[in-house]
Computed example of a mutant assay.
Amino acid sequence: MTDRPTEARHSQSAGLHQQQPAEALSLLLDAQIAALSALRPALPALGQAAAVCADALSAGGRMGYAGAGSSGLMAMADCLELAGTFGLPPERTPMLFAGGAAALLHMKGSVEDDSTQAQRDVEAAGIGAGDVLLVLSASGGTPYALAAAGAARQRGARIVGLANVPGAPLLEMADIAVLIETGAEIVAGSTRMGAATAQKVALNMLSVLVGIRLGHVHDGHMVNLVADNAKLVARAARIVSEVAGVPAAMAEAALAASGGGVKPAILVARGMSPERAEARLRETGGHLAPLLD
C-alpha cells in the first residue's frame, strides 16, 4: 500500500501543523485545485462512460453505483440527486454502499474489506445484463469495490471503474477505465480530500452528460426535473417560460395542463395539446430540440 501515490508524502505538507490558519488553508485549497486538474486527461473516458450509461438507461437498463468509504459517499451523493434533477426513478439507479445504511451514521473501515457482502449487494440489486455499474475506489484496490465489479461483470453488466492510482486492479478489470491521477494527498493517505473531490466532480460531469444524452437537459435547463417542493415548482415554471418564450402565467397554466411535466408543458405552451405533446416526445425519445427547432 505504501507504493500507492495516494499514500505518499505531498511536497507541500512538511510543517503543515505549524502553519498559521490562513497559510494552511491556502495550501489545502491549492491541493484541491491541483486534484481537479487531474480530470482533464480523464475527459475522453468520462465521455465514453456517459455514452454507455445513457444507452443502458435508454434501453431499459440501469446505471448503478458502488463504492466504500469516501468514494462510496461521493457515489451516493451523485446517485441520490438523479431522481430530482433528471427525473430518473431510483430503481433505475441503484446504490451499493459498503456497510449499507448503518455505515452512513458510523463508517467502519472493516466493511471496505467485505467482499462477500459486495457480492450479496450486487445480487440483491439484481445488477446484470443490460446494466452499467459505476465502481469507485481511490486506491483502485478496495476489496468491496473489486468484488462488486467482479460480481456485476459475471452477471453480464458493464463496468466503469473510477480510481486515482495508475495500474490499479479496478481499472484493469473495468470495461471503461477512468483514471483520475490526483497523486499524493497533503494529509498523506486522506483520500477524502483531493481524490474524493476529483471523483465527485467526475461524477457530476458524467451524470450531466448522461442527462444531456437522454434529452433531460435543454439549453442548460433541467427539463425533466421532478418538482416536489415549492422551490422546484417555481423553477419548473421559470424553465417553461424561458424555453417556450411565454409569460409566467401561461407557463403555470401549461404545467397544470401537463400534470407538472416540464417537457410536455413547454410544448403545450407552444400550442400543442397535452396528448399531442406526450406523443411527440415519445417519438423523439424524450428530446425537445427536434420539436422546437
Rank of each mutant, 00 (worst) to 15 (best):
residue 61 G to K: 10
residue 49 A to M: 00
residue 46 L to T: 00
residue 22 A to D: 15
residue 41 P to W: 12
residue 29 L to P: 00
residue 36 L to I: 09
residue 13 S to N: 04
residue 67 G to H: 07
residue 70 S to V: 04
residue 13 S to R: 01
residue 50 A to Q: 01
residue 87 G to F: 08
residue 10 H to Q: 00
residue 66 A to W: 12
residue 81 E to S: 01
residue 64 G to D: 00
residue 29 L to T: 14
residue 30 D to M: 13
residue 11 S to L: 14
residue 52 V to P: 03
residue 54 A to N: 02
residue 14 A to Y: 09
residue 69 G to S: 07
residue 64 G to V: 02
residue 8 A to G: 02
residue 35 A to T: 08
residue 32 Q to K: 05
residue 44 P to F: 01
residue 82 L to I: 08
residue 54 A to D: 00
residue 39 L to N: 05
residue 39 L to E: 04
residue 81 E to W: 06
residue 58 S to N: 14
residue 46 L to Y: 01
residue 9 R to N: 11
residue 84 G to E: 15
residue 73 L to N: 11
residue 14 A to E: 15
residue 57 L to D: 12
residue 49 A to E: 01
residue 32 Q to P: 05
residue 78 D to E: 15
residue 53 C to F: 05
residue 11 S to G: 11
residue 9 R to F: 07
residue 10 H to I: 10
residue 10 H to G: 03
residue 77 A to S: 13
residue 56 A to K: 02
residue 89 P to L: 07
residue 71 S to Q: 11
residue 78 D to Y: 03
residue 79 C to G: 13
residue 29 L to I: 15
residue 56 A to D: 06
residue 90 P to G: 01
residue 18 Q to C: 08
residue 57 L to Y: 01
residue 27 L to P: 11
residue 34 A to N: 09
residue 55 D to K: 09
residue 80 L to M: 13
residue 73 L to R: 13
residue 34 A to I: 01
residue 40 R to N: 13
residue 20 Q to G: 14
residue 37 S to I: 00
residue 62 R to W: 04
residue 26 S to A: 15
residue 62 R to M: 01
residue 6 T to M: 04
residue 64 G to I: 02
residue 53 C to R: 09
residue 67 G to V: 09
residue 57 L to V: 04
residue 33 I to L: 15
residue 26 S to I: 12
residue 59 A to Q: 13
residue 53 C to T: 08
residue 16 L to A: 09
residue 92 R to L: 13
residue 37 S to E: 15
residue 58 S to P: 03
residue 42 A to D: 09
residue 61 G to H: 07
residue 39 L to Q: 06
residue 56 A to N: 03
residue 81 E to V: 05
residue 58 S to Y: 05
residue 49 A to N: 01
residue 61 G to P: 02
residue 71 S to N: 08
residue 48 Q to H: 05
residue 81 E to I: 07
residue 79 C to F: 04
residue 51 A to Y: 07
residue 59 A to M: 05
residue 29 L to M: 14
residue 19 Q to C: 15
residue 87 G to Y: 03
residue 52 V to M: 11
residue 86 F to I: 02
residue 50 A to G: 05
residue 70 S to Q: 11
residue 37 S to V: 01
residue 8 A to V: 00
residue 39 L to I: 14
residue 17 H to N: 12
residue 84 G to V: 10
residue 38 A to L: 05
residue 50 A to T: 02
residue 15 G to C: 10
residue 53 C to Y: 04
residue 33 I to M: 12
residue 84 G to Y: 09
residue 35 A to L: 06
residue 79 C to W: 06
